[in-house]
Structure formats: C-alpha cells, structure tokens
C-alpha cells in the first residue's frame, strides 16, 4: 500500500514568511490525516475536531520556530499527538498516563491467545461489528503505544519519521510498536477466536 506521508511541494520558506495561501495549502494537504489521527486517538468526532483545530492554531503560532528538520506533516503530527494526549489528561485527570518503561524490550508479555483465526471468511473481517471491535481495541491501548501504532501502522510513517514526530529514539519506537502490535493481536485474537467458534457451531 502506498501511503503519502509528505506533502513535498510545500514551501517551508513561504510558510515562515507568513504566506497565508501556502498555509491554507498545508491545511488542505494535512488536515485529513490529522483529523483521522485524532479520531483514532480519542474516539469521537468532536474530540478529533478539537485536536485538528488546536493543532493548526499551534502550528500557526510556532511556525517561526519550525526548523524544517522534519517534514511539515511530521511536525504537525507531533503537535497533534501532544494535543491529543493533553485532551486525554484533561478528560481523565484522575488517571495518570502510565509512565512504565515501555521502551524496554525485556519482560514482553508472552502471547496467550494461540488460535489461528486468519482463515475466517472475509465477510467476518469486513462486518460493521468487526470494524467496531478494531476501533475499540485501539482505544484500549495505553496512550503512548497507541500514538506509535497509529503513526507507524495506520498513517504509514517510517520508524525514523515516527521517532521525529514523538521525540523518541528509534529503538524506543520499535519497542513500543512491538508492544502495541502484541497487545492488539491479543485483543483481536480474543474477538476473532470467538467468531471462529460461532462459525464452527453453525
């Protein structure tokens, strides 16, 4: 799958010079992925729209300090992830966002679900119920793993771009990605193994 991650023809110079038309072009190139990220990160269209608006407002305010070391889109992703995490903290101030060392590759959770459900009919994967199960599983991921998974596997950023967007080392990105994928694999395995049992008892 080819996923466009970099609006290559955006001129950082013109953005920094305050060219409004160029900024509007950046908005049109980047707003759909930023909105999608917000939606998957937070789960509701209202929150996704808040993240979207705040991201571009912050971007406008901090354009002068944008050094162009990453692409404009990667820079926007970074702002958006921070906005999303802030919104999550505001909504659930009682819950501390887990600070456990998720960069460590030691102590990975051993896989529990060991049924192969890949052979289910395609219609089972495409049903509206399955789509809801997929979305719900993302929202159950710890926030820091969620951000890595969304940027890398949904938005198609490279490991390097993901590390730039999140201010993490590439090793930390790889470990969080592994943990996120293992976690989602367990959740989907529970769900689809249930479907498999239903298929077999039909």
């Amino acid at each position: 799958m080819v996923i466009e991650t970099t609006p290559t023809d955006i001129s950082v110079e013109r953005l920094k010079a305050g060219d409004r038309a160029e900024f509007a072009r950046l908005v049109d190139l980047a707003s759909a992925p930023i909105y999608r990220l917000g939606l998957k990160m937070l789960g509701t269209p209202q929150d996704a729209e808040d993240v979207l608006q705040n991201t571009f407002l912050k971007a406008l305010q901090s354009l002068k300090s944008f050094e162009g070391r990453s692409s404009p889109l990667t820079w926007l992703y970074r702002i958006a992830v921070n906005e999303a995490l802030m919104l999550i903290r505001r909504q659930r101030p009682q819950v501390e966002i887990a600070e456990e060392p998720q960069e460590e590759a030691d102590d990975l959770p051993a896989p529990v679900q060991l049924t192969d459900w890949c052979c289910l009919p395609e219609s089972d994967f495409l049903s509206a119920e399955s789509q809801r199960a997929l979305d719900a599983a993302i929202l159950k991921l710890p926030e820091k793993l969620r951000a890595v998974f969304l940027l890398r596997d949904i938005e198609g950023l490279s490991i390097q771009e993901t590390s730039q967007a999140l201010g993490l080392t590439e090793t930390a990105v790889k470990t969080r990605l592994l943990r996120a994928r293992l976690n989602l694999r367990e959740q989907l395995s529970s769900y689809f193994t249930g479907r498999l049992t239903e298929e077999r008892t039909k």
Partner: peptide, 22 residues
C-alpha cells in the same frame, strides 16, 4: 500462529482505515 495473526492484525487495520477527505 503469533506471527500470522500479528500480520493479519496489521493488515486488517490498514485495510479498514478509510482514507477519505475531511
């Protein structure tokens, strides 16, 4: 099984994501 279902998991997320405009 772990490798196959992990591949399938990633594949399902990439397929289900609707890449539509705003």
């Amino acid at each position: 099984v772990v490798v196959n279902t992990m591949k399938k998991t990633i594949d399902l997320y990439q397929t289900e994501t609707v890449r539509e405009g705003l």
